[in-house]
């Protein structure tokens, strides 16, 4: 996906992601609890751990550690088999998403990945939307 296409394609869930400072990668937007220090993605109304309302926005990424990976052979959204990954963000929360690699190029569990923009078909009508994906580091 070119930079122009990325800029022209809206974030699929705008409150979940934004551009990283390098304008090439993404960060995920969650929150941290001021009372107990636990970090979450995505945001919830109260802290999941201690129920405090003293939660503040926090960014995670643009790197993470791959916690697990699978090939979704049903390919519900893309119409073809694709990788799905689960990452551990650096302050603790887990996130699931697409892996930006072919099904024959599965990254190793425990490896570092970048959070990058990833085009997915819009659910209704035509065009694409942008979500995050986990791309193996070079």
């Amino acid at each position: 996906m070119s930079q122009a296409e990325q800029e022209g394609s809206a974030f699929i869930v705008p409150e979940w992601m934004r551009w990283a400072s390098d304008r090439k990668r993404l960060v995920l937007v969650g929150q941290r609890c001021r009372a107990c220090g636990i970090a979450f993605f995505p945001k919830t109304a109260r802290c999941k751990a201690c129920y405090s309302a003293e939660v503040v926005e926090a960014e995670f990424g643009p790197e993470a550690e791959l916690h697990s990976v699978t090939i979704d052979h049903t390919g519900t959204f893309l119409g073809r088999p694709h990788l799905v990954g689960q990452v551990r963000l650096d302050d603790g929360p887990f996130a699931q998403g697409f892996v930006d690699a072919g099904v024959d190029a599965e990254p190793a569990i425990g490896s570092r990945v970048d959070l990058v923009p990833f085009s997915v078909p819009a659910l209704q009508g035509t065009g694409t939307l942008t979500t995050y994906a986990f791309r193996p580091k070079e």
Binding site: I12, V13, W16, H67, S68, V69, T70, D72, T74, G75, T76, F77, H82, V84, G85, Q86, A95, Q96, G97, F98, I109, G110, V120, L123, Q124, L129, T131, Y132
Partner: peptide
């Protein structure tokens, strides 16, 4: 709702079995 479905798509969560597969792969690891 569309908003809810977009959250599934954002997370590549189109196949309920992937949740179990990810846990299985982690166990293998």
């Amino acid at each position: 709702s569309q908003a809810e479905t977009r959250k599934y798509l954002a997370q590549a969560y189109g196949n309920a079995m992937t949740i179990f597969a990810l846990a299985a792969r982690r166990r293998m690891h």
